[in-house]
Lab assay of single mutants.
Amino acid sequence: NQASVVANQLIPINTALTLVMMRSEVVTPVGIPAEDIPRLVSMQVNRAVPLGTTLMPDMVRGYA
C-alpha cells in the first residue's frame, strides 16, 4: 500500500504548499504519492482543499 499526500489543514485556493500543510497517509483512492511531498513545496493549489482531503494531481498547479 502506497502512502498518498493528505491535507493537514484547510488549504485555501491559490495557496503555496508548505511541509506543515501536508502529511502522508495510506488512503483510497490513491492520490499524489507521499514521496513527491518535497516537490510539492511552493506549488499552488487551484482549489480549496479541506482538512483530510487526498491531494490529486489536478489539484496542484504545475504538478501533472
Rank of each mutant, 00 (worst) to 15 (best):
P50Y: 12
R23E: 03
S4C: 05
E35Y: 10
R39Q: 12
L51T: 12
G52M: 12
I32H: 01
P33S: 08
S4Y: 04
G31D: 01
N8F: 08
S24R: 09
L10H: 14
P38G: 12
N8K: 09
P29R: 03
G31V: 02
N8P: 02
Q2A: 13
A34G: 11
S42G: 15
A34R: 05
L17G: 01
M43F: 12
I11H: 00
V45E: 00
D36E: 13
R61F: 08
P38A: 14
P33L: 12
R23Y: 04
S24N: 09
A48I: 13
T54K: 04
G62L: 09
L10A: 14
L17R: 00
T28M: 05
V45L: 11
T18P: 00
V6G: 01
M22Q: 00
N8M: 14
R23D: 04
L51M: 15
P50W: 13
V5T: 07
A3W: 08
P50K: 12
D58N: 13
M56R: 07
Q2T: 10
V26G: 07
V27F: 02
L10Q: 13
S24T: 12
A48M: 15
N46K: 11
V6R: 03
G62T: 04
T53S: 14
P33G: 09
P57V: 07
L55W: 01
A48G: 07
M21Q: 04
G52E: 06
Q9W: 14
M22Y: 02
R61W: 12
M22K: 00
I13R: 07
S42N: 14
L17T: 00
P12M: 15
Q9N: 09
L51C: 03
A48V: 14
Q9R: 13
V20S: 14
N46R: 11
Q44H: 10
M59C: 04
V27R: 07
T54E: 01
R61H: 09
D58H: 08
Y63C: 03
A3V: 09
P38S: 12
P12V: 07
V6A: 03
N1S: 15
V60T: 02
G31S: 02
T15L: 06
A64Q: 09
I13A: 12
R47W: 11
R61C: 15
V20Y: 15
L17A: 00
S42Y: 12
V60F: 04
Q44S: 11
L17M: 09
G52R: 07
P12L: 11
V45D: 00
M43C: 04
V5Y: 02
N14S: 08
N8H: 13
N46L: 15
S4D: 01
Q2K: 04
D36P: 00
L55F: 12
A64W: 03
L19P: 05
V49L: 15
G62N: 06
V6E: 01
A64F: 03
L19Y: 12
L55I: 14
A7F: 02
V6C: 04
P12K: 12
V41Q: 08
I32C: 03
I13P: 09
D36V: 08
E35P: 07
I13C: 08
V49Q: 02
M43E: 04
T53D: 14
D36A: 09
N14P: 00
D58V: 09
R23Q: 04
P33E: 05
G52I: 02
V41A: 06
V27S: 08
M43K: 14
P29C: 15
T54F: 02
V6L: 12
P57A: 14
A3M: 13
N46Y: 14
P57I: 08
S42E: 06
I13F: 12
T18W: 03
A48D: 13
V60L: 09
T54L: 05
A7K: 01
M43L: 08
Q44M: 13
M59I: 06
E25W: 05
T15H: 07
N14D: 14
L51V: 11
T53P: 00
G62M: 08
